[in-house]
Amino acid sequence: MTAHICFRWLALSGGLAVILGTLTGTAIATVSEDPGASCSTLVPDCSPVVKIERDARTRGGIAAAAALKQLGTRFSWGGGSSSGPTRGIGVGALTIGFDCSGLTMYAWSRAGVRLGHYTGAQFRQGRRVPLGDLRTGDLLFFGGGSGDPTHVGLYLQGGLMIHAPKTGDVVRTTQFLGSPYYRVVFRGAVRPG
């Protein structure tokens, strides 16, 4: 079963907004952006959420907010930098966007942490975190057997990650703990910084 999530911007004083997840009813991140985007512009047919429990004062929260602002950005193999989406390489050469490690590199750069643009390098950059101790912003790694992992996502909360899945897709959220695919190929988590 695939769980879908919708994010809604709620305006606060001082030009801040809060991104809320309808799946958990919890504030994912506070961002300093134009709160004009509505829930329906990000994901059709979603309803507003009113419960606010956390903000983005942590590095992980800042990284999560940066990644969430990229929802819907096209996948581009080799794409992404610490500055944002870029043209990729090979099959991604004609597409401006992110690959999985490009998205996480960009997100964590917004929090002041430099990561390499390769999933295997990111797997070795930070402290290992047990599944039961995940925090918003932790990196989640998948696949690759006994070699380097082949995919990375950024943990939000409640078993939900944001990632750039594959060519032809866009940056999206996925309930990885409930996914028959991602749960089986989960390799571990790392907390950068």
Rank of each mutant, 00 (worst) to 15 (best):
T86E: 01
A56I: 01
V129T: 04
G116H: 02
G147V: 03
V18C: 00
L140V: 13
V50M: 13
G84L: 03
A29G: 10
F186S: 00
R114N: 14
Y106D: 04
A164Q: 07
K69Q: 15
W108V: 01
G102R: 02
G126Y: 01
G72D: 00
D34Y: 10
G159E: 06
M105P: 09
D34N: 15
H151D: 01
L177T: 13
G158N: 12
R187I: 06
D133I: 10
P44T: 11
R135F: 06
E53V: 12
L12H: 14
G102S: 05
K69D: 14
Q122A: 03
A121R: 11
V50G: 15
R128K: 11
C46L: 06
Q122M: 01
T58G: 10
D99Y: 04
F141G: 07
L71N: 08
V113S: 03
R191F: 13
V190P: 00
L16R: 12
K69M: 15
G143M: 11
Y181M: 12
L42H: 13
M105W: 09
A56R: 07
S179E: 00
L68C: 13
W108K: 00
A56M: 04
S101P: 03
W9G: 07
G153C: 03
P35N: 00
G132Y: 12
R183Q: 12
G36M: 04
G153Q: 01
K166N: 09
G92V: 03
D45V: 12
V152R: 07
H117E: 10
L139F: 02
I19S: 13
P192M: 00
L140C: 12
G116L: 08
I28C: 10
G143N: 09
T119V: 13
G80V: 08
G84V: 06
V171R: 08
R127S: 13
R114C: 08
E53L: 15
Q125K: 02
W108Y: 00
Y155T: 10
I19L: 15
D133R: 15
G36T: 07
G36N: 07
D148A: 15
I89D: 06
V171L: 12
T26R: 14
G14C: 05
A189E: 05
T22L: 10
V113G: 02
V185R: 11
D133K: 15
A56C: 04
A93V: 05
P165M: 03
E33D: 14
T24C: 05
L23W: 10
T119D: 05
G159K: 11
V49T: 08
I89G: 06
L139C: 01
G97L: 02
R110I: 09
A27R: 02
A111C: 10
I28P: 05
L177C: 09
G188F: 02
A93M: 07
R110K: 15
T30A: 10
